[in-house]
Design a protein around this nucleic acid. Structure first.
Lengths: 199, 199
DNA sequence: TTGCGAAAACTAATCATATTAGTTAAAATA
DNA sequence: TATTTTAACTAATATGATTAGTTTTCGCAA
C-alpha cells in the first residue's frame, strides 16, 4: 500500500478538492496536500507546476461541476420554473463544494482558455433558460449578468457567514429569486409597451 | 524628513489602504508596507499585532466608509430613487476602494464587535430606505439581504473581471437594480392581495 | 540643562512555505 | 535483460511573518 497508490494528476485534484471543501481554500498548501497523499512536498512538482496551477485547475473543475449541477436542474423545465431550478442548483453546489466554488471565483487567471470555455457554457445555459421570456437579445445578456450577480452574491455572503440575523436563509433566497423573476416579467411588459409605441 | 514622520496606527492604516486599493489586497504584506513607510518590517509590530489584525482593521474601515457613501447618497431621497442612489453609491465605493472592500468581505473575523456594529449600521440604513415600501418587517429583512446579495455579487464579479462580453456594464447594473425594484413592487402587490384575503 | 523612562526604531534569529536542483529508485518497455 | 522514463527522494534556497533582545530617540520632570 505504501508506495503503490500510483498518484496522478486526477488523484491529486480529487484530494485537493476534498481538502478545500472540508477546510477552506486558504488551507490548501503544497505541504498539507503532500501529507494527505503521503508523499514529500517536492514530489508534487512532478505532476504540476505549483500551487497556482493547482488552484487554476480547481477553478476549472469548479465551474464545470457547477455547470453540471445547473444543467441537470434545467432538464425538463422552462420559464420561471427553470430559473428557480438552476438557482437552487447553484446554491446547492456552493454548499456542497464551498472550496471548489471559492477557487473558481477568487484567484483564477481569467485569460485561461479552458476556464473561459467552462464559464461560457454556464452563460449559454442561462441564456437558454431565459429564452422563454423572449427578451431582446441584449436585455437577455444583462439579465444573465443580473442573475449571476444575485447567485454569486447570495452564496458568497452565506459562505462567509455574513447573514447575521436569525431569519431563515432559504426563505431569503426563495424570495430573492422570486423578486427577480417578478422583475423580469415587469421589464417584459415595459419592453412590450415600447414595442407598441415604436410600431 | 527621514526619521521624523511619527508613524502611528492611523498613518499605517492610511498607507495600507492606498496599497490595497492600488495593488490589491493580496499584495499587502508586512514587508511592502514597511517599505512604503520607510521603516523595517519588525518595527510595525510596535503598532499592531500582525498582518491579520491589520486586515481586520482595514475591513472595519471599509464597512464604515461604505456606510458613509451610502448615507450620503440616501440623504434627501426616498423610495425607488433612494434604492437607486444607495446602489450607485455602493458600486462607486467598490470601484474607488477595491482593496478596502475586498478586505471587508474576504477575511474578516465575523465575531469582531466593531465590525458587527459597522455592518449593522449598513443594514439599518437599507432597512430605513426600504421603509418606503411598507413591507412586512420580516419581508423587509429578506429584501435587505436580497439587495445586499445583488450589490455584493455584481461588484465582486466586476472587480474580478468576470463580465466577459463587450456589453455596457453600467447598463447591466441599472437594469439589475431596476428589475429588483420592479420585483419589490410586484411582491408588494402580492402581499396586499394576501392581506385582503385574510381580513 | 540633564537625565530618566517610554515609545519606537533597529538587527539578528526563527519558522513556515513554496520552489528548485540534483539524485535515485522503481516500473514500463524494447 | 537492458534501457528509458516516471516519479519519488534529499538538500538547498527564497520569501515572508514573526519573535527576541537591543538601541535610539524624545518628551518631560528634577
Amino acid at each position: 500500500m505504501s508506495r503503490r497508490m500510483k498518484i496522478d494528476i486526477s488523484i491529486i485534484l480529487q484530494k485537493a478538492t476534498e481538502l478545500v471543501d472540508e477546510q477552506g481554500l486558504d488551507q490548501l498548501s503544497i505541504g498539507l496536500l503532500a501529507e494527505k497523499l503521503e508523499i514529500r512536498p517536492p514530489s508534487l512538482y512532478n505532476h504540476l507546476d505549483g500551487l497556482n496551477e493547482l488552484k487554476q485547475k480547481l477553478a476549472i473543475q469548479g465551474v464545470n461541476k457547477l455547470n453540471e449541477y445547473m444543467l441537470q436542474a434545467a432538464v425538463g423545465r422552462s420559464g420561471d420554473d427553470a430559473v428557480r431550478a438552476i438557482s437552487q442548483a447553484y446554491i446547492q453546489f456552493v454548499r456542497e463544494h464551498p472550496g471548489l466554488y471559492d477557487a473558481s471565483t477568487r484567484f483564477p487567471d481569467t485569460n485561461d482558455q479552458e476556464l473561459q470555455q467552462a464559464q461560457e457554457a454556464v452563460v449559454q445555459l442561462v441564456l437558454q433558460v431565459l429564452d422563454a421570456y423572449n427578451l431582446q437579445e441584449e436585455i437577455a445578456i444583462h439579465m444573465v449578468r443580473g442573475l449571476r450577480s444575485i447567485l454569486h452574491g447570495f452564496t458568497s455572503i452565506e459562505q462567509m457567514g455574513g447573514f447575521g440575523m436569525p431569519l431563515d436563509i432559504n426563505k431569503s433566497f426563495l424570495i430573492l429569486i422570486n423578486t427577480f423573476i417578478e422583475g423580469i416579467h415587469a421589464v417584459m411588459i415595459n419592453e412590450d409597451k415600447h414595442m407598441q409605441r415604436n410600431d
